[in-house]
Simulated scan of single mutants.
Amino acid sequence: MTWLALVLALLLEQFRPVGRGNLFYGGYRGFAEMVERNFNAGEYQHGVVGWTIAVAVPAVLAGLVWGGLYLLHPLLAWLFGLGVLWVTMGFRQFSSAFTGVADALKEGDLDTARELLGGWTRESTRTLSENEVARVAIEQGLIDAYRHVFGPMFWFVVLGPAGAVAYRAATILQLKWGARDRRLGGRFGLFAERVAAVIDWLPSRITAASFAVVGDFEDAVYCWRQQAERWTSEAYGILLAAGAGAIGVKLGMPLHQDYTVKFRPELGLGEDADADMLASAVGLVWRTLLFWLALILLVTLSTLF
């Protein structure tokens, strides 16, 4: 039943995608802002309390609803789980931006590609070259594929609807509180940043290993072992290094942003990033998804016989 819910959620999301500004996410962000207003006094321990409340409330609520529906009828609980998956995961939450950048690069329209990438990453892209746009798009695509597909899938399989809800809440808080306070030197969001690294530790490595299995295994493992630790985020460094090695592309490296140079370590091996390599990245993600679904199906069938 878990496998069927995953497949149907992915299909449903293709036809009725949940947009970035949807009611569920908007409501949760409002709840997170309320928690921060009441608990952010600038100290680390306040962030611990705020994060616990902001994650535990929706996760426990999801678990209670699922449990109550299961007592009424297992099918009702399954439908609820399907709805949770539809909200918490899906390609369409980032794929339209990725496709737009790829199409603009293929047509030679660098300005449009820059504009679409900037709206997607929410960073300055006005002075990026074509190669830099392609690199950043592949990097953001691999990270978003993990955050919106493989991360929620993993925690749903492990902990059910409550796990998927907790994971999505934790990623929102990491971006909303953790990344902000890491950049500005605040302390309230440090716990959100640190616990996100713990939550991502296992699923990010399983995803990176899957990239290696469905791509160039030798290069993916080499890049993972030799390059990943140089990235600022351990989990994302592993994902990007393994993904770059799996498709044979160079990622990372310096970026020309706002007429300055942003120095970043080199990841991957092989060719320079371009529009064709964006297609290779999409293929890697889809092969990995099919690989996961096949494994989950085999495990499910093995428990039935």
Rank of each mutant, 00 (worst) to 15 (best):
P161C: 12
P161K: 08
A162V: 04
G163V: 00
G163C: 03
V165I: 14
V165C: 07
A166V: 01
Y167Q: 10
R168T: 04
A169R: 03
A169P: 03
I172Q: 12
I172P: 07
L173R: 11
L173S: 00
Q174N: 15
L175A: 14
L175Q: 10
L175P: 01
K176D: 13
W177I: 11
G178V: 01
R180F: 12
D181G: 01
D181W: 05
R183T: 11
R183E: 15
G186E: 09
F188Q: 07
G189W: 00
G189F: 09
F191H: 13
E193S: 15
E193N: 11
R194I: 01
A197W: 04
V198R: 05
V198A: 11
V198H: 00
D200Q: 08
D200W: 12
W201S: 05
P203S: 09
I206K: 09
I206F: 15
I206C: 13
I206E: 13
A208T: 06
A208G: 01
A209G: 04
S210Q: 06
S210T: 13
S210G: 12
F211I: 11
A212L: 06
A212V: 00
V213A: 11
V213W: 13
V214Y: 06
E218L: 03
A220F: 04
V221S: 06
Y222D: 15
Y222P: 02
W224V: 05
W224F: 15
W224A: 14
W224H: 11
W224N: 02
R225P: 04
Q226W: 11
Q226F: 06
Q227C: 04
A228H: 05
A228L: 07
E229T: 10
E229H: 13
E229N: 11
R230K: 14
R230I: 05
R230Y: 14
W231S: 03
T232L: 13
T232Y: 14
S233A: 12
E234P: 08
A235K: 08
G237H: 01
L239G: 05
A241Q: 04
G243N: 02
G243Y: 05
A244I: 03
A244H: 04
A244Y: 07
A244V: 08
G245I: 06
I247V: 15
I247Q: 12
G248R: 03
V249K: 10
K250C: 03
L251H: 10
G252T: 01
G252K: 13
G252F: 02
M253H: 09
M253T: 12
P254G: 03
Q257I: 15
Q257S: 15
D258Y: 00
Y259C: 05
T260N: 13
T260L: 13
R264D: 02
R264N: 07
E266S: 13
E266D: 09
G268V: 04
G268Q: 01
G268M: 06
G270E: 07
E271S: 10
D276A: 13
A281F: 03
V282Q: 12
V282W: 15
V282S: 09
V282R: 14
G283V: 02
